[in-house]
């Protein structure tokens, strides 16, 4: 019940954020150079053709009419059609291929990071000033300072090329297709999905892994110094239980925040990794559509990213409230 009210409030806030993003990207069209008609019309088109195109795209109305239509359409989930490929629905184009692909990559990278980073950070903090700690610190320093494009290229060069069965340069199947095939009795697609996903997720996740390792280590060290840890030991709680149930749990609070923010940026912003691996994700699509002045698509992508961002943040806030009960009181 408590969580329900909390969630409701967050969803209400989120709607405002999405509306804001939608408005800003709409207004952006009027202050950026280049327009869809010029991009679409043949170079030798006369005024008549241009006027017809403008009418067809709905750009001849006054701004406030356009804005009103745009927002009311959005409210019923109608993102319109692309301004370049006129009969192609924006939502279909973005969501069912590009968005899912980026989301899968972002989530895989995050999971990879969590699975590696948190145990590494815990070990590093508990065995401070031992070779294990020094190696973990060295790794995280390296991970933070390695640029993605270089790491991606090196992984292709040093792993994908010699090993052979790890493909690069083409996008693989989507997870929902793979799972569908699995239930239909063909596990091969899932194997393909894993093969295709491995290197991009590793590339995208390395910085993230390094960051969380450091955060976990320093957070744990800070928590271990607190008086309640001594109290746990005094009551005879096993050390491992003290570490995981008390210390790590409190360390997770700041980590969850960073995780959420980072995952949000990864969805729309993994352009470099997507380019290196020809991943055909949302970031790449955005750049391509901006070059084509395809404004309905640009609007759609920005709004989808905004929705993804606020959803993740809401989930983070809920987790946060679960981890630290004091949050709920405010």
């Amino acid at each position: 019940m408590q969580y329900g009210r909390f969630l409701l409030r967050r969803v209400f806030h989120s709607l405002f954020v999405i509306w804001g993003a939608a408005t800003v990207v709409f207004l952006l069209r009027f202050i950026t150079p280049g327009d869809p008609v010029t991009a679409l019309a043949p170079p030798d088109a006369g005024d008549e053709v241009r006027a017809a195109l403008e009418r067809r795209l709905g750009l001849d109305d006054p701004i406030h009419v356009q804005y009103f239509e745009y927002i009311t359409d959005l409210m019923v989930g109608d993102f319109g059609n692309s301004m370049e490929v006129l009969d192609r629905s924006v939502l279909d184009w973005i969501f069912w291929t590009r968005f899912l692909r980026s989301l899968e990559l972002a989530i895989s990278a995050t999971i990879l990071a969590i699975v590696i980073a948190i145990p590494l950070g815990v070990v590093s903090a508990r065995r401070r000033h031992t070779p294990a700690d020094y190696s973990a610190t060295l790794f995280s320093l390296g991970g933070i300072s390695t640029p993605n494009f270089w790491l991606g290229l090196m992984l292709i060069l040093l792993i994908a090329v010699p090993v052979g069965f790890i493909p690069t340069g083409t996008p693989g199947p989507l997870l929902h297709e793979a799972v569908g095939d699995l239930f239909a009795g063909d596990p091969g697609t899932l194997g393909d999905w894993l093969r295709f996903m491995f290197l991009p997720a590793l590339t995208l996740g390395t910085y993230f892994t390094a960051l969380i390792t450091r955060l976990t280590r320093s957070g744990m060290l800070e928590e271990i110094g607190k008086a309640y840890v001594k109290a746990c030991r005094a009551k005879g709680l096993p050390e491992t239980l003290t570490m995981y149930r008390h210390v790590l749990r409190n360390t997770l609070i700041p980590i969850v925040t960073i995780l959420g923010l980072q995952l949000g940026t990864l969805i729309g912003g993994a352009i470099i990794t997507e380019t290196v691996f020809e991943w055909n994700g949302l970031g790449q699509l955005l750049i391509e559509r901006i070059n084509a002045r395809d404004w309905t698509m640009i609007q759609g992508i920005v709004i989808i990213i905004a929705i993804g961002f606020v959803t993740i943040n809401t989930v983070v806030d809920l987790l946060y409230a679960y981890l630290d009960p004091r949050v709920m009181e405010e």
Partner: peptide
């Protein structure tokens, strides 16, 4: 053996 500490506020884990 059991122990009672000086500052009760910091000797309990705030999130449990």
């Amino acid at each position: 053996f059991a122990m009672i500490f000086q500052d009760p506020m910091s000797s309990f884990n705030p999130s449990i």
